[in-house]
Write a protein that binds this DNA or RNA. Structure first.
Lengths: 211, 211
DNA sequence: GCAGTGGGTGGCACAGTGTGTCAACCATGG
DNA sequence: CCATGGTTGACACACTGTGCCACCCACTGC
């Protein structure tokens, strides 16, 4: 079994093994972000990162399956949170409201990161570097696919199922995630001074499902 | 100047030079798609493609900057069409309607491709291969950014400009593009039998800006 | 204490991507 | 006829990501 990329199959194991693993990953990520911010992403090779943390290239690849993963790997935790939160919303609640609330954790995470120095420039690098941006969007797309399933299950449970070939549930989820990304762009454009929560609220008030 | 990746800076030059270039690109792309469909994307190297068209690896890289670009390069033409169409919409028209119409060309393209054998399996490969999917989403994101500008210009012209840090215009555009992607998923899931136009209509009827 | 066991580590080799460079080639027009 | 500018192929190169193997080290049962 592949242990190096199971962060999506994220079980809440709190064994010693997993904890030290997370700790090392975090250390590597922080060192890498420092390098990325000061030297640029393209100019920083896996070799540089490995050297910076005193680890062989080969070993580093056991913690991160890809160079992009060094930066984006930790997002899986956040996106998993979104899905858990979505599943936890009350059954009767309107989808758009449920979606908005399921973003709370992610948003809080971003708002909290606004003060600590490295997160914002790193986020900017992600959105400005083609390769990273592409992978970043892919993470969102995966959430989109999962969230669609949750939304469909909900509609099934409510006795109002969607036809399998109906694009509606996915469109709704995609619109919600589009709002988050739109908010994030606005957030970064304004120097991360405004509150993400506010920006997402504004976006999700301007767009939504038609009832 | 970099000539191999200027397909985004797409001028409507119809010189001999550009035409033969396009022709060769098309030939390579078709050969590559055959290989991708029968052998799989990951298993097909640039070397294989080069050999299949009787061309050196180095030369192939002068026509496509990336292996992904061999598949996705031709999309730039389509996405440029979307932007041109959007700019051409009448000033007074509601944004959502303008966006829907600006997709017409792209949709027709997909519906037409449904019958010719290679396009649909290729599209399926794109959405199933992580690397390709990521790049595909990035293309959409680029359209999103450009379309946002157009929408903002329009609002400016109408004397109702958006604040620079307002996520609304981008959220609207993102929602529209999300509808297209949602429709595409449904389309492929149903074996490309239904009309894309219909699916997009359904998605864009279910979601939209709140007035 | 001592062998055994299993996970973590580094070294090495390898296929593949994408790029710089250079010499050869080929069409065009003076 | 040759000069010129664009196209091509060959080679070399740095880098990514992976398979393989020997090694080390903590922990276990004897």
């Amino acid at each position: 079994m592949d242990r190096s990329t199971d962060s999506t199959t994220n079980q809440p194991r709190t064994g010693l093994r997993e904890r030290t693993r997370r700790a090392i990953q975090k250390e590597v990520t922080e060192a890498a972000e420092r390098l990325f911010v000061e030297r640029g992403y393209e100019a920083t090779t896996i070799g540089h990162i490995a050297e910076a943390v005193g680890m062989s290239r080969r070993t580093l690849y056991r913690y991160f399956s890809t160079r992009e993963d060094v930066v984006l790997g930790k997002l899986d935790v956040v996106t998993d949170e979104v899905l858990v939160a979505l599943r936890a919303r009350p059954a009767g609640e309107p989808v758009w409201v449920s979606l908005r609330h399921s973003f709370d954790g992610m948003i809080a995470h971003l708002d909290a990161a606004a003060s600590s120095g490295l997160a914002v420039p790193m986020q900017r690098i992600i959105l400005e570097t083609p390769g990273l941006r592409a992978r970043y969007l892919e993470k969102f797309e995966r959430v989109e696919a999962m969230a669609e399933l949750v939304v469909r299950e909900r509609a099934d449970a409510a006795g109002k199922p969607w036809a399998a070939d109906d694009p509606t549930p996915r469109a709704v989820v995609a619109a919600a995630l589009g709002c988050v990304l739109a908010a994030e762009h606005a957030w970064l454009a304004g120097g991360a001074t405004e509150s993400m929560a506010l920006l997402v609220d504004r976006a999700m008030a301007a767009v939504g499902p038609r009832d």
